[in-house]
Design a protein around this nucleic acid. Structure first.
Length: 453
DNA sequence: GCATGATCATGC
DNA sequence: GCATGATCATGC
């Protein structure tokens, strides 16, 4: 069956809404394969009735439209999120290096996507997942500007003979995610003898979540930058430009200049300053389009006169049941740092002890640090859990044998509870004050100082 | 002066 | 009621 127009195709696609994969599946794919791509294949061969292929051309080639069947999920707080990144075509390092963006394999195959969303539910058999919504997706111009710059960055690494150093954190919306059975899925690259991990273009999970919320939850996101700006400059440059005029000011002075009311002691003071300063006063930061799509999370840093923060930085409390069960590759802490861009908003105490805005830094943890120090840290926590957590009463409180800040210079474990009764149970049954993932103050100091890493 | 255990305070 | 950003307090 050939679909002559986009409307015709969309009309057909919408007939799948409310159907489960079991209802659609004519060739018993559900029973015969456990492969992750099976759900997409069921839609291809049983619903649209064309042969599953891996052509460089888009699936509906006469229309230039690529079919993607992709999951979303409901969170505990009822909001919706994409369940995973959207994996596109594999990058052929040998041929992609010479192409322009519009000649690239990414653009050829994925410029128009028929996105069919199904709802993933824990504890539900995959045959019972239902297709909920379909959109014919064409990148908005604002997003395309960022995607082009992401693509250019990926290509620049290939051209520099550094395909083996590509990582998802390098880019904002379009990623180069690993794709292959294991670490041995390697490919050659044109400007280096080193083999590189096989990777595919992908739309990041945060980008897909923004689409889910826009099209299914009908949420509105607000851009802080204009199309013209995004076509000329990177998001990082634009952020630097927006913050630059406020360097040296106290929070009160910033608020006065921005004509907003804040209480510097309130937790909302810094996010309120950020949204006002970006020209989207009153918008929650997770409703800013660029932040949502690139998963930019802000963190405030207060440094002393010597440029070093007095305090370390805490993240999520450690879920001990989770950490003993998980694999490194899909561990909470690895995913967090692979997928999160952190916007450090740095304030510094001056000679009078007055806190003044110093600078910002858009940062993601380098892949080498994730795979070395962060991995060692994670492995050490598990080792302690496995070999035995030793709790010792001291004058200062209850000491434990989790990694301390001298472990490897990057991260440590430290308590974080609401009060003396805020405890959890360890896998071995002992009760312990809730513990948290912390990045060392000295490590944060190195990141936010001007010294290159 | 730093490291580390403890816990406050706010916002959802 | 809980999660989390923030910071205190004390011993070495």
């Amino acid at each position: 069956m050939i679909y002559e127009t986009e409307d015709e195709l969309l009309f057909k696609a919408r007939e799948a809404h409310g159907k489960t994969f079991r209802e659609i599946d004519q060739y018993s794919r559900l029973n015969n394969t456990r492969a992750t791509g099976a759900l997409g294949q069921i839609v291809e061969e049983s619903f649209f009735e064309y042969k599953v292929n891996s052509n460089a051309e888009a699936d509906f080639s006469n229309l230039g439209i690529e079919l993607k069947v992709t999951p979303f999920k409901q969170n505990n707080n009822k909001s919706l999120s994409a369940k995973e990144r959207l994996v596109l075509n594999i990058i052929n390092y040998m041929t992609e290096a010479e192409k322009s963006f519009y000649e690239s394999s990414f653009w050829k195959k994925n410029q128009k996507l028929l996105l069919m969303f199904y709802e993933w539910k824990k504890e539900v058999d995959r045959g019972d997942y239902k297709i909920i919504e379909t959109i014919l997706f064409k990148y908005p111009e604002e997003d395309l500007a960022v995607i082009k710059s992401d693509w250019t960055l990926i290509q620049a690494k290939i051209q520099a003979g550094l395909a083996h150093e590509l990582s998802e954190g390098d880019t904002l919306y379009l990623g180069a995610c690993t794709k292959g059975a294991n670490k041995n899925s390697l490919r050659e690259q044109p400007f280096s003898d080193e083999h590189a991990m096989q990777r595919a273009y992908s739309l990041k999970q945060s980008y897909m979540t923004a689409l889910v919320r826009q099209y299914i939850s009908k949420e509105k996101l607000v851009h802080f930058s204009s199309l013209e700006e995004l076509q000329e400059k990177s998001i990082e440059q634009l952020l630097n430009e927006r913050f630059e005029p406020f360097i040296g000011m106290t929070m009160e002075e910033m608020a006065l200049r921005l004509n907003i009311q804040i209480n510097p002691r309130n937790r909302s003071a810094v996010p309120n300053l950020i949204s006002a300063l970006l020209g989207v006063k009153g918008t929650k930061l997770d409703q800013i389009a660029e932040f949502a799509k690139a998963n930019i999370q802000f963190k405030t840093v207060r440094v002393q006169q010597n440029g070093r923060p007095k305090e370390s930085m805490s993240f999520k409390n450690i879920d001990f049941e989770e950490i003993v069960r998980e694999q490194w590759e899909d561990s909470y802490i690895r995913n967090y740092f692979v997928e999160t861009q952190i916007l450090f908003v740095v304030f510094q105490f001056d000679e009078q002890g007055v806190l003044r805005f110093k600078n910002i830094k858009l940062w993601h943890m380098p892949m080498q640090t994730i795979e070395r120090e962060l991995y060692e840290y994670w492995a050490e926590v598990r080792k302690v859990l496995d070999e035995g957590v030793i709790l010792t009463k001291t004058k200062k409180g209850v000491e434990n044998n989790f990694p301390k800040s001298d472990f490897n210079g990057v991260a440590h474990v430290r308590p974080k509870g609401a009060d003396g009764n805020d405890k959890v149970q360890l896998p071995d049954g002992q009760s312990i004050t809730k513990q948290c993932y912390w990045l060392n103050a000295s490590y944060i100091g190195r990141i936010v100082s001007d010294i290159e890493e």
